[in-house]
């Protein structure tokens, strides 16, 4: 048990160090912060609303993640395939699942770091008014969980190909589907032929619905379980994809 946790941590550390030894990390963090700022203050009418909360900040996160998270996830496995290091990694004494989990955690921690670096927005809100910081904390947790869901999808898509661009496009499309699965453009695909129970299930898949409950400050166990399940499911598919298609 201890040894397997160590394996996960070793893979995670290497991956995380990899982000910071290339420009990827800095480019991502800068773009993330700039975009988050632009969305919050211009599109979100942060000042004009006259309410001291971080709703304008969080409400754009799903859309920000839709493009930025696949950009982080696309290299996870596609790059290993392209450079051949997948053969090195998966012949070391660790299981495929440990490698998948380690890489995912690295990317997730990295996104978490980018998220933490948005603290000036939080400082601003607290300077201007008296927000409910519990709600803000819940918003951060929800946002990070949602990023994890996007990342798990992106990691899995990245395992399908050695081409990072293909991985990026695939994950944007799948993430988009998950994001919107409560909305008509996805529901119309199912209504008319699928039973009501399936329609309800699909509607329940929406990231948006679960994220908005959490970001309103309501930490419902069901929403936490939902994101945990989404992450676990996609990482399991990810492992399975690697197991059946290790070499090209």
């Amino acid at each position: 048990m201890g040894a397997s946790i160590n394996s996960v941590i070793n893979v995670m550390r290497r991956e995380l160090a990899g982000y910071f030894s290339t420009p990827v990390a800095w480019v991502f963090i800068v773009i993330f912060l700039v975009m988050a700022g632009v969305f919050t203050f211009y599109l979100g009418n942060f000042y004009a609303r006259g309410i001291s909360d971080m709703d304008p900040f969080f409400q754009f996160h799903p859309w920000l993640y839709l493009f930025l998270v696949p950009a982080i996830a696309m290299r996870l496995w596609a790059e290993e395939r392209r450079s051949g290091t997948i053969e090195l990694l998966l012949t070391l004494p660790l299981t495929t699942w440990q490698a998948v989990l380690g890489k995912f955690l690295a990317a997730w921690l990295f996104v978490g770091l980018a998220l933490l670096l948005t603290f000036p927005v939080w400082l601003t809100v607290n300077y201007l008014g008296n927000p409910d910081n519990g709600v803000i904390a819940a918003g951060y947790i929800g946002s990070w969980l949602m990023a994890g869901g996007f990342l798990a999808i992106g990691s899995c898509m990245s395992a399908l190909t050695r081409n990072q661009v293909v991985a990026f496009i695939l994950s944007v499309v799948v993430c988009f589907g998950f994001l919107l699965s409560g909305l008509p453009m996805v529901m119309d695909l199912f209504s008319g032929w699928a039973p009501q129970s399936l329609l309800d299930a699909v509607a329940n898949f929406s990231f948006l619905a679960h994220f908005s409950t959490i970001s309103r400050g309501v930490i419902d166990l069901r929403d936490l379980v939902y994101f945990a399940l989404v992450i676990a499911l996609w990482l399991m598919i990810n492992t399975f994809v690697l197991e059946i298609k290790k070499a090209d």
């Binding site: 160590n6 394996s7 070793n10 893979v11 550390r13 290497r14 160090a17 990899g18 030894s21 290339t22 450079s83 051949g84 290091t85 053969e87 090195l88 012949t91 070391l92 004494p93 660790l94």
Partner: peptide, 25 residues
């Protein structure tokens, strides 16, 4: 095992790479 073409993580330094392998081992 030395895989064909001796792949390695390009952005890592030789020392960091070998330390990673050592820890996984």
């Amino acid at each position: 095992y030395l895989p064909e073409g001796a792949p390695g993580y390009g952005e890592m330094t030789v020392r960091k790479f070998l330390e990673f392998i050592a820890r996984v081992r």
